Simulated scan of single mutants.
Amino acid sequence: MDNLKVIIIGAGMGGLTTGIAMRQAGYEVEIYDRVSQLRPAGAGISLWSNGVKVLNRLGLSQEIAAIGGQMNRVTYCSQTGEKLTDFSLQPLIDCVGQRPYPVARTDLQNMLLNAFGAENVQLNSKCVAIEQDADSVTAIFEDGRKATGDVLVAADGTHSITRSYVLGHAVERRYVGYVNWNGLVPASDDLAPKDSWVIYVGEHKRASMMPVGGDRFYFFFDVPLPTGTVSSPGTYREELASFFKGWADPVQNLIQRLDPLKTNRVEIHDVDPLKTLVRDRVVLLGDAAHSTAPDLGQGGCQAIEDALVLATYLQTTNISVADALKRYETARCDRVADIITRARKRSNMTHGKDPEKTQQWYEELRHEDGTEILNAISKTILAGPLH
């Protein structure tokens, strides 16, 4: 399709990557976001090789390498600090042809904003309705403004307003069963080796540190809790000290070193896989299309994959916009449903939904040399659009 005008709702990772891909395809692009200031959700993200390959394809290989952490090894430890397994990521890199890059979300957002042009993103623009006819689609904003184009990309996140328009009904998010605290701390050897992703596991909980650019670790803590538990930054440190009482020294050091005011606390939710991602000229993308638990580290990567696949189908058909979007839907539905389902399953295993299974997993880690873990990750990566 030539000379399309693309309206994108949402300036997160998915929206911005789509904006870059669409502009490179020669389309006119406008991005709108409801917020008054762009602040990424969460402190860090593990960008696996399938997401990195798309960014490379979009001409951002040097930029992503500059902000990505050098993650060369993975180590699992018990809560007492006993090493369960420790292995190199090199076999994975050799297999899939690209190293992963864990990144701070702010760095990633800034990189994408610079590539797209921050001045081209219109803030304070909450999309409250959508209208379309045979030839165009229009976003209507809360203040009465309108934006009309040939395609509307709904990339407005897990709490998407536009999703109910596409589906014809609202969708409830589902609590996965655990609370996640996450943030950034300066990298230091008494926490973890600077080129390793280290995960402490026990009591159905996790404490994790992963290297990102700028000589920092992205950390998270997971604790299975009932939904609706009340907390505030003033008590994060005490709570974590109590949840991880008796755990190894690096975990205690991390709890003392984190900045509670810069730490996020999130109840982890997902959304059941959707059967449709498209309504005529409107298409769901990113978390609006497939909100997943972070247990496979694929949420952001799937949004980035969406962007490339959507741009490719629009570029490679001259039948109609609706036809291109349907092809995108066919290409993406099973892929993202698989990620949601497997992330949910992994979360259940990690967080003690069936305590026997979690115990069995701890035991398996003792005998794991990395092969099975790396094979599973490779499979997920190689099922993406760029093999």
Rank of each mutant, 00 (worst) to 15 (best):
K353Y: 15
Q79I: 09
P233C: 00
A11R: 01
R39Y: 12
G144Y: 12
Q302P: 11
Q359P: 00
A104R: 11
A187L: 05
Q109N: 11
D249L: 15
Y200W: 15
R342M: 12
L4K: 00
L365G: 07
E30M: 05
T162H: 05
F219P: 07
G202E: 02
G149E: 02
P186S: 12
L308I: 10
G81M: 00
M111Q: 08
E30D: 11
T371H: 15
P91A: 12
S378N: 10
W181E: 05
S242N: 07
V176I: 13
G10L: 07
D272A: 14
K353F: 15
D323Y: 07
D135Y: 10
N375Y: 10
L310R: 05
I161V: 10
A311F: 03
T17Q: 08
E131C: 11
K262L: 08
V179M: 10
D354L: 06
L225H: 01
D143H: 01
P102K: 01
T229L: 11
G14H: 03
W247L: 12
A155D: 11
F217W: 01
T276R: 12
F221E: 02
V223K: 01
S378Y: 10
A43I: 08
E364R: 14
T292F: 12
G213N: 14
Q98P: 05
D143P: 05
Y76S: 00
N348E: 11
L152T: 03
A154T: 07
R73F: 13
Q252K: 01
V271R: 15
P211I: 03
I20E: 02
L285Y: 09
S320M: 08
G300P: 11
C127Q: 02
Y313D: 06
G15F: 02
D133K: 14
M349E: 09
C77D: 07
G168M: 01
G228C: 04
S125K: 08
Y101L: 12
T263S: 01
M13W: 07
Y76F: 08
W48P: 05
P100S: 14
L16Y: 03
T227K: 13
I9S: 10
S49M: 08
Y32T: 03
G15H: 01
G297W: 07
W247R: 07
P273W: 06
P385M: 13
G44W: 07
L277W: 14
A331H: 10
H351F: 08
W197M: 15
S232R: 12
G26P: 04
T85Q: 06
F141S: 00
R206F: 10
G81K: 04
H269L: 00
H269R: 02
P224K: 05
R335W: 04
P91G: 09
A331V: 08
A41H: 06
Y27R: 05
R73G: 06
